[in-house]
Design a protein around this nucleic acid. Structure first.
Lengths: 109, 109
DNA sequence: CCGAATCCTTTTTGATACTG
DNA sequence: CAGTATCAAAAAGGATTCGG
């Protein structure tokens, strides 16, 4: 298997670029952990980032069908975010990454 | 489990930051795929990046004990890179990420 | 409360040049 | 071949502000 010739490689390339964006894995992880819909401000607080960055990441996740955005026309408006089915299938992968860190007691720089 | 209070969270945070750096997952992935030592220029060619970036990423990986660097005083000097044992344990995680992309035929933006 | 536009700051990248 | 230093350009982050 030649990595440079694999037709799915460009897709994986895009996934890596996406996952690499700041706070994005965090957002996926907390949506997975909490196992319930989270509001914008919940997410902002949990990942500890600016609203600008959270907004950008949620938009990218939504555009890539990894996050569902649901809103209700209450007053004030109610919005919540959940993982899509496909993103839920990625959750074990993300979890295993966390497990790896925990099990090997890494000291990263 | 409260993500913001988990003591390993800062370690995971660092892992995510590390993995998020451009080309870094690529480098781990090809070292895993090829299953043999690779030279600097091999890696540079396979990930298609500048020598500056490849150099930086390899240094970071080495500093975090994810990559072994071995050199021989031949002429010209011979250097090769391999995954450390601990990084090899992370390989299935990375692989599952790739599998996820392949199995779900994602169309990422 | 949700979140986008602006605009400025910080970070990252990579071309080039150079050493061993 | 295997890198590193420099430096300019590009990308990304975030504080602030503002509207729905």
């Amino acid at each position: 298997m030649d990595v440079e010739c694999n037709p799915i490689f460009s897709e994986v390339d895009k996934l890596i670029s996406l996952l690499g964006k700041s706070k994005l894995l965090h957002i996926l992880y907390i949506l997975h952990l909490k196992e319930k819909p989270l509001s914008f401000s919940d997410i902002k607080r949990l990942v500890d980032s600016s609203s600008t960055t959270v907004s950008r990441r949620l938009r990218e996740l939504e555009d890539n069908n990894l996050v569902n955005r649901t809103s209700f026309s209450t007053r004030p408006v109610t919005v919540y975010y959940t993982l899509t089915q496909i993103a839920q299938l990625l959750a074990p992968t993300i979890q295993s990454m966390y497990d790896w860190v925990e099990n090997h007691n890494l000291k990263l720089i």
